[in-house]
Simulated assay, not measured.
Amino acid sequence: MKSYQIKFAQKLPISSSDAWDFFSSPANLAKITPNEMAFIVTSGDSDGKMYPGMIITYKVSPLFGIHLNWMTEITQVEHEKYFIDEQRFGPFKFWHHQHHFKAIEGGVEMTDILTYALPMGILGRMAHEVMVKNKIKEIFTFREKKVIELFGVYTGQ
């Protein structure tokens, strides 16, 4: 199985607790996801506090307008430090997404480490090169811009 990893970091001019409250809430995921992905959280407890074992379900249309069901489990949580979600059902063969938060001068640094693999062997590897890696980068670029709209530009050290 060929796996891929992307690391993305962004500094925000908000407190660790404000960052945690926003990013650990499944209800806010659609706000930072491109509209064309038609992202909808379908699980009932999406407004609740995150906890290990929490299952979150979604409907998403990542490519070509094809609607998919996706299920992730929150496997680890350390309040205001990090949480990890892993796919249980969905478009990837493997999905492990770490979300880290670190207090810094004038705000918080948020770091995502995404490790994933695609199904279908060589066809999945070709799809990754042709479109999937670019789509994932596009999603993180959109999120970076949206987060700046929501919270402002980090101007600290």
Rank of each mutant, 00 (worst) to 15 (best):
I84S: 03
Q76D: 15
S61W: 03
I139R: 05
F83K: 03
W20H: 13
H97G: 10
Q87E: 14
H97M: 06
G65L: 12
T33G: 05
G124I: 04
R125Q: 09
T115S: 10
P13M: 00
Y154R: 05
P13L: 00
F64D: 11
L118F: 09
E149G: 05
R88A: 04
F89S: 12
F8G: 00
I104K: 10
Q5F: 01
K146E: 15
K7V: 15
K135C: 03
F101V: 06
Q10I: 04
R88D: 06
K135Q: 14
Y116A: 11
H79R: 13
I122S: 06
F39V: 07
S24N: 10
I32Q: 11
F94S: 12
F142L: 01
Y82V: 00
K2I: 09
R88H: 06
L29R: 07
S61V: 06
Y51L: 10
R88K: 15
I6N: 07
N35W: 00
R143G: 10
K31L: 13
T115M: 06
W70D: 12
F64L: 12
N28K: 14
R143Y: 04
E105Y: 00
A38G: 11
L29V: 15
I32L: 10
I113K: 08
A30L: 04
P119F: 08
H79S: 13
E138L: 03
K146D: 09
N134D: 15
I14H: 02
H96E: 07
P13I: 01
A27V: 12
T75V: 09
F101L: 14
Y82K: 09
